[in-house]
Amino acid sequence: MSVVMEEAAGGRRRSVAPMLVGPATILVVLVLVVPMAILFRYSLNQFIPGQFMVEAVTVENYVKFFTDSYYLNVLWTTVQVAVACTVISLTLAFPVAYVLARTTSRYKSLLVILAVFPLMVGNVVRAAGWMVVLGNDGVVNSILRGIGLTAEPIKLLYTPTAVVIGIIAVVLPYMILTLQSVLEGIDYSVEEAALNLGASPSKTFFRIVFPLAMPGVLAGTVLVFILCMNAYATPVLLGGPQFKMMAPALYDQIARSTNWPFGAALAFVLMTTTLTLTILSTVFLQRRIRR
């Protein structure tokens, strides 16, 4: 196989391409692929308290996970939160993405940047923001008290609701930007053609715009779902100590319990669950458009 295609005359060393991709590839293999392989191997080791870790090939860590109701609960909570956040953010992001894609306003680029900005600011800072908004003496409760709706503060912070709100705010920009780029590629005249043929605006949306935006819906859903499943800062800061999702549980296993084999198993359960649900939802959504 030739290394160079359609290259100008006058020759060039054939080893250029490997030299260019080599360093980056080696680095990624070294810091990601190798450690992941080791992690997987360790998930099959045994953990004996006092002895730390013993070489073995066993699935007992995985068995322990799926038989322990505490961890099953953590996984179930994580999946519930992730599904809720994904569905809500898709619903909220679609109209925004549609407006961004179709507007001819000169504020369009400002709106895009405003969507990117919170994303760049980082999760921790935004979680801090929600803490002061939702806290007992926070903005919401102060307003409610101010207009005399409540005497006692409503507990908002350190509840699952707070986590869902926080995660939605984190993932919304990703969803908006993904959908926008796909909607931007849909020729507006196709919508006009539907209107011309007698379809009302809502029919046009459900029969034309939404099916055509499906690749964006899929990409956005997958991306956002993965982010939700792996959220760390938001559940830790907004969920309170009783509320556990998978990423914080994994951190606890490694950093506090120093149970590497079980922690490694946890990591792979998290990844596999995410992957499986992603594939399932992709297949489901693709079926729906074929219909």
Binding site: V96, P118, A128, G129, V133, A169, L172
Partner: peptide, 9 residues
């Protein structure tokens, strides 16, 4: 939606 995502900031 914009208010929502910008609220914490």
């Amino acid at each position: 939606v914009y208010l929502f995502i910008l609220t914490p900031v």
